[in-house]
């Protein structure tokens, strides 16, 4: 299973084909073909483009999440921090009359502070990261509601959201940004010591401490990055919707965990790939799109998605589990 752990010099172990790492590609392709064959309007440029457009926002909530899951930490606050990006956009644009180019970095910075604090608590007190981030999720979600309700559906002026519609080569720039981000992280995860050490930390935390890595610092930084990028995605999403909305980022963490785990990451750490996480997010959205096109009720979609999550985690436990 070398493929999931970044680039290595050596030749693959002979005769071993790793199903796990190709699973997501296979699933996505199968679902894609199925929908293309059975749904009339599916295989059109505009439909695929619009799915990718949706994916491109949510993907940013999955970036930091993937970095953290590689180290065996789970960040459940990504959904609400995604929403926070939107709430803060409203705050800065409506209340402080800031231009969008200032609002987005500011929103990211504030979110980063929250992520940094969460990371600090997790590492300093050796807390379960899921527990801490559930608390963060609740608190932030509450704040988002309060803020966004104050705006009362007020629209962001066109001049401020216009940039989101920019296209390059006939493709929305956020899609290109997503692809570039995934590619960049993938390359760094495979080849640069800064990100490659995440796999080492995830494989055996104590070993990395023993040989002098500052693993706690790395974790705190990744919590920070996770929060900032989630807020970035949410801010962009808000620009697309043209107004802050409370549903932005709602239950996104479920989709993101599912995406990362079916993308080959393990909740036990040491495995994961940014590119495959992106495919995982695409798969989740494709599935939702497909289910909607089959007129499947959104609540039933929720049942199906939740079941896939539990199944994926179960397989993870069976394959990678040091059972507890």
């Amino acid at each position: 299973m070398t493929a999931n752990t970044g680039r290595t010099l050596a030749v693959r172990e002979k005769g071993k084909i790793n199903l796990g790492s190709w699973l997501i590609l296979f699933l996505t392709a199968a679902l894609f073909v199925f929908l293309a064959l059975t749904r009339k309007n599916f295989y059109t440029y505009s439909n695929i483009h619009s799915i990718l457009y949706e994916v491109s926002f949510s993907f940013f909530a999955a970036v930091g999440f993937t970095l953290l899951i590689i180290m065996g930490e789970l960040d459940l606050s990504v959904g609400s921090l995604f929403g926070l990006g939107g709430a803060l956009m409203g705050l800065f644009i409506f209340n402080h009359r800031l231009p969008v180019e200032a609002a987005i970095p500011l929103a990211m910075a504030l979110a980063a502070v929250i992520g940094f604090a969460a990371g600090l608590l997790v590492t300093a007190f050796r807390l379960n990261s899921m527990m801490v981030t559930i608390g963060v999720m609740m608190a932030v979600k509450g704040y988002n509601w309060i803020q966004i309700q104050k705006f009362g559906g007020r629209q962001i002026p066109r001049a401020q959201w216009n940039f989101i519609t920019v296209e390059l080569f006939g493709v929305k720039w956020t899609i290109l940004a997503m692809l570039a981000t995934a590619l960049l992280f993938e390359i760094f995860l495979a080849g640069s010591r800064h990100l490659k050490q995440l796999y080492y930390i995830g494989d055996n935390f104590s070993t990395t401490i023993l040989y002098g890595l500052n693993a706690n610092l790395v974790k705190v930084l990744c919590f920070t990055v996770s929060a900032a990028l989630s807020a970035f995605g949410g801010a962009l999403m808000t620009c697309r919707l043209k107004h802050p909305h409370v549903t932005v980022g709602a239950n996104l963490e479920i989709g993101v965990i599912t995406a990362a785990v079916i993308g080959g990451a393990s909740i036990f750490g040491g495995r994961g790939s940014m590119f495959r996480t992106m495919l995982g997010v695409f798969f989740v959205f494709l599935l939702q799109n497909g289910m909607t096109s089959y007129d499947i009720n959104s609540y039933v979609q929720q049942i199906i998605l939740g079941s896939i999550l539990i199944l994926a985690i179960y397989l993870d436990v069976r394959i990678n589990g040091k059972r507890t």
């Binding site: 070398t2 752990t5 010099l9 490659k196 796999y199 080492y200 494989d203 070993t207 990395t208 040989y211």
Partner: peptide, 16 residues
């Protein structure tokens, strides 16, 4: 502690 059990030997050796 002392090894990265699931990482290739090359990665283990380059760790420090």
């Amino acid at each position: 502690a002392g090894l990265l059990p699931e990482m290739p030997v090359t990665d283990n050796l380059s760790l420090p």
